[in-house]
Design a protein around this nucleic acid. Structure first.
Lengths: 222, 222
DNA sequence: ACCATAAATGACACCCGGTGCCAATGCAAT
DNA sequence: ATTGCATTGGCACCGGGTGTCATTTATGGT
């Protein structure tokens, strides 16, 4: 007995090696969706293209509609950590605004991929449907934060409402972004939050100036 | 030749009479869902209980998950008509608030049924998913109204954002209502809109007073 | 009475997403 | 070689949803 008898698996844990990966299936699937449309691609076809059985596909993804979401739970964790680090003196909505804006800033080389995902998710009915389930996690994180700040459970009315509203801002920005690729997503989200803070004052005039702001490509004011 | 030769079908248009109705299937289905849970009831079983074939069920409802929604398109039309009658001098958000509050006022005898629907829709994952598709119509109506008011297409950023936000308020209220049957739904919605108008000022103190307001059963202030 | 017409139903075959089950596979440690 | 183990593949099965076609049940005209 050496004391260090089992060498704590270097890279290969044990058993039969995997025939594919989460990422590979995702890449193949997204490619096929882009080419032929979501509904016209069956799980069978994705599996075949990956050289794997249909049954195996479902061991990597719970459903077909989970494919475009990547590891969304992990993304949500990122949001949670960001919010955990917000200093207490920062006002609630300002903090949320900053956090959500930053959460949606993706590295330049990943922008196209991100747009493809969002475009699919927001256009295909089955994926639109699925999105509400996915965003539920997201909302809970926001509500949890708001609850801490307001001194009440994250599940109570106001925190939940704030979660809904923050998600609204983000989704409205996503929808605007898809047909306007030249726009800057974080800026769109920031604008959405800004508009929300002055809903009462919204009439012909003020709306026009705001609308003009977001029309600037890239969003950096001159 | 009488000039009035074909008598414009009194009640029976022609052909084989229907074996069931939209409403009957809905009633039977909702009953079964309530008894055994949504997932544990197959379309087959609903059809059998209605004395009709499975194929026929799908001639009355496009999908199983449409069943709890009744004739939602018609409800949305009601909202549209309400908004069309709003006087122009009424501020945008105030008008929306009133319209959405009134839209959600149901006659006392229908409250329980309405609660059952909403409870199902907000708790069963498949129905949660479906809800986004359904509410899309709802949002479009709001966005269309906002667009008219702001002098821009209903499909532009701000109107869409306003649609999202109004829906958020309503949904947050629905979710609060389900576990608190004694609350008054229109009042909850009104409160949600009110809270949204002062998001910036939301901190410990103000939130507590608001939270207290909605805790009053029935919502009529003393 | 008889026949055309028309609308709705029912039966059947089929596709796809998703799941439970179990035997086969491929690698590592002994 | 043998054992242990995770993963895979195959298969049967369920439920939702659709396309197709013959059948049913009425009405209206002759």
């Amino acid at each position: 007995m050496t004391g260090l008898d089992h060498p704590a698996e270097p890279d290969r844990p044990l058993g039969r090696p995997r025939a594919t990966t989460h990422d590979e299936l995702e890449a193949i699937g997204m490619d096929l969706f882009g080419r032929r449309g979501y509904e016209n691609v069956s799980v069978q076809q994705i599996a075949e293209a990956a050289g794997v059985s249909r049954r195996t596909f479902f061991r990597y993804f719970p459903t077909k509609s989970d494919l475009p979401w990547g590891d969304f739970a992990q993304e949500v964790d990122r949001l949670r950590s960001t919010l955990a680090l917000v200093p207490d003196q920062q006002p609630l909505m300002a903090a949320l605004r900053r956090a959500v804006v930053e959460f949606n800033r993706v590295p330049a080389e990943a922008v196209e991929q991100h747009r493809a995902r969002l475009g699919l998710i927001l256009s295909e009915p089955e994926l639109i449907a699925r999105s509400l389930l996915k965003f539920q996690l997201w909302r809970e994180v926001i509500a949890e934060f708001a609850g801490r700040r307001l001194g009440m459970p994250g599940s109570s009315f106001l925190p939940e409402l704030i979660g809904e509203i923050a998600l609204s801002a983000a989704v409205a920005a996503y929808r605007e972004w898809i047909p306007h690729p030249s726009a800057d997503l974080p800026t769109l989200i920031d604008t959405a939050f800004e508009a929300m803070t002055d809903l009462e004052g919204l009439e012909h005039g003020s709306a026009a100036t705001l609308a003009q702001r977001i029309a600037l490509p890239d969003g950096r004011s001159p």
